[in-house]
């Protein structure tokens, strides 16, 4: 029963992700905000359809349904035996590996961050460029003046802090590396996260991520969702500053700073996982920089997007009903 539910969720994730990715290409959806919403759909459908189908149609998943109505019956693959290994065993191995990956990649860093001693704070007055960049930011985004926190850390880093005291958190390592224009682009990017209330939605996304904990396809879609969100805030930053070059250059500083720290660590050489992580991070940063530098082709009509999103949701749900 649990194995069936797991397989159905992974299958529905795969079908939803495949459908959404194909539609993004065919419908020329290029705006990150729209792409983000489509990818969220690919994450939501599997967690909603499997329990909904089971509740609404008790015969869903029964042998008769599998034999008669199903387009794809996962049990055929589960019962298949190749080289002495059944599909059931292979699925259990995927489940165990994905769960382990979830703990190592998502839970462990969260626990470490919670338990880690807090870095000492530095006063904004110590960084003259910051005051100048903040003044420029207030000029281009009147009414926005979130709190700024500066942590004393060599690693270049910028992020948003949620909760009652929402703030943009910058590291001293970052402030020492970037110039005024780059800093303004970073502030505009983080300001976009705050304006979108990402720090609040983050908890809902974390819950969704937990539901997809052992789902390797869900993990991939989550990665793409995160990348799209960064692209979205990059666009909002460039729309505010009109300066894609400075944001791209700031990204290069952030990436180089992280890489230099890693390369000095023996752990970086020992750990294949971290090396892979660094390569993946590099690929994401390079893609963001390339995107900022390239001219944007015209995307699809915004007017049709809600309608298309609805059609995609209903059509994929109808298809998923036949996948069991």
């Amino acid at each position: 029963m649990i194995l069936d539910l797991y397989v159905q969720m992974v299958l529905h994730s795969a079908v939803s992700a495949l459908g959404v990715e194909a539609l993004l290409v065919l419908w020329s959806v290029r705006e990150p905000a729209q792409r983000w919403r489509y990818r969220l759909l690919a994450l939501l459908l599997p967690v909603l359809t499997v329990p909904a189908f089971r509740l609404l149609d008790p015969s869903w998943g029964s042998p008769a349904f599998r034999a008669g109505e199903a387009l794809f019956d996962s049990r055929r693959w589960l019962e298949l035996r190749v080289g002495g290994v059944t599909g059931r065993v292979a699925v259990m191995a995927v489940f165990a590996t994905s769960t382990l990956g979830f703990f190592l990649q998502e839970v462990r860093p969260l626990i470490r961050e919670l338990w880690q001693e807090k870095s000492p704070r530095r006063a904004p007055a110590e960084f003259p460029d910051l005051a100048s960049a903040l003044a420029s930011w207030r000029n281009i985004s009147p009414g926005e003046s979130p709190a700024i926190e500066i942590i004393d850390a060599e690693e270049p880093m910028s992020k948003c802090k949620g909760g009652k005291h929402a703030a943009v958190v910058l590291s001293s390592g970052l402030l020492n590396r970037v110039d005024k224009k780059e800093l303004l682009s970073i502030l505009a990017h983080e300001g976009a996260h705050l304006r979108k209330r990402d720090h609040q939605y983050g908890w809902a996304l974390l819950f969704l991520r937990i539901l997809h904990a052992a789902n390797p396809i869900g993990l991939l879609v989550f990665r793409k969702l995160g990348e799209e969100n960064e692209n979205w805030c990059d666009d909002l930053s460039v729309a505010a500053t009109g300066d894609p070059l400075s944001l791209a250059s700031a990204l290069v500083h952030v990436y180089r700073g992280t890489l230099t720290n890693d390369q000095h660590s023996l752990e970086w050489y020992r750990s294949g996982g971290r090396a892979l992580g660094a390569r993946a991070r590099e690929a994401v940063i390079v893609a963001r920089i390339e995107r900022l530098m390239k001219p944007r082709p015209a995307g699809s009509s915004r007017q049709l997007e809600p309608w298309r999103m609805g059609v995609a949701g209903v059509s994929l749900t109808t298809l998923l009903f036949r996948v069991v």
Partner: peptide, 15 residues
């Protein structure tokens, strides 16, 4: 949808 349906039907026959 047609492409995915054909792909799923094909995969369903593989075992």
């Amino acid at each position: 949808l047609g492409g995915i349906a054909v792909l799923l039907s094909g995969l369903n026959r593989v075992p």
